[in-house]
Simulated assay, not measured.
Amino acid sequence: MSRYDLTDFEWRVIEPLLPNKSRGVPRVDDRRVLNGIFWVLRSGAPWRDLPERYGPRTTCYNRFVRWRKAGVWDRLMDAISAAHDGAIQMIDSTSIRAHQQAATVKKRGQIIVSVSRGGLTTKIHVVVDAQGLPIRLGLTAGQAHDGQIADRLLDHLGPRTIVLADKAYDADRIRELIQEQGATANIPAKSNRKWKPCFSKRLYRERNLIERFFSKLKHFRRVSTRYDKLADNFLAMVQLASMRLWLRACESELWRKMGDDGLRRAAYRGG
């Protein structure tokens, strides 16, 4: 078993969320295929280097693309992140170097790669919850302003949610979008803003959680460097990495609670 494979806990969470297939030829074992996809995600290796223990590489790749087109990864991301802590949400972006093969595509498709002094880049935009776990994701070209995608990522806020963001999101339309949903923006004002809104430096320090998330996300080598030509495929990889971080956090919390319960039982027994 590879250290990149799904644990029993992770598989118990994912299995009920996968598509059912009651007719026709039974498909190749879902867990083995998913382990192959996660191996590529974590190692960053090309699909053709997939170890034989995961079955044919074409099966893993075709399943990855077919389920992406069918919205399976979207539904899994929504289901797994549904338990997020919405009291505080943070939005930010990180730039990803794109491999030269990601900037060329034979078929028509959305690439979202820009050329700058840093080379070929793509931006990953993320909203995380109060625990630093991802809720919503998006992509833009590397030179795009962070505020361009904020309207789409911040349109599902709950009442009394506090939104933390840096000065790049200090725009009237973004503040109005947040306020219309009953939420509160805690965003530092730009130096040229005449009216200075309320701002808490103490709350703003919580933004280190989103920086930690980006650090963990880039442990997945298929995300830390973009090899996928199509933006949809790359975003699906980011979703899978995000789901894995959610599952690991949930499993760690479960083990912590089990440990606490064990200590309480031991204390009750006088052990």
Rank of each mutant, 00 (worst) to 15 (best):
F9Q: 07
A267S: 11
A70L: 12
A241R: 03
T58Y: 10
L137A: 07
L263M: 14
Y204A: 08
E15F: 01
I112M: 14
L254P: 02
T58K: 12
Q131T: 10
R226C: 02
V65W: 08
D74F: 03
N192F: 06
S224F: 01
H145W: 07
G36R: 05
A189L: 02
R256V: 11
Q143G: 01
I80E: 04
A267K: 13
K229T: 13
K21T: 15
G44P: 02
V33R: 02
L153P: 00
G71A: 05
V40T: 10
I88V: 15
S93M: 00
N20C: 12
G138I: 07
R205E: 12
P188T: 07
A70W: 02
A87Y: 09
L153H: 05
Y4G: 03
I124Y: 04
W73E: 03
H99L: 06
C198M: 11
L247D: 06
Y169S: 07
H84C: 13
C250L: 13
P19G: 04
F214D: 04
L263C: 10
G24K: 03
G118N: 09
A82K: 13
D92Q: 05
R42W: 08
L154G: 02
A236W: 01
S93T: 11
T58F: 10
A236H: 00
R68L: 10
R226S: 01
L120N: 10
G138Q: 04
L209Y: 00
R23V: 13
I91P: 04
R264Q: 13
D78Y: 08
D29Q: 11
S95K: 10
V13C: 12
K196Q: 15
L209C: 03
R32L: 15
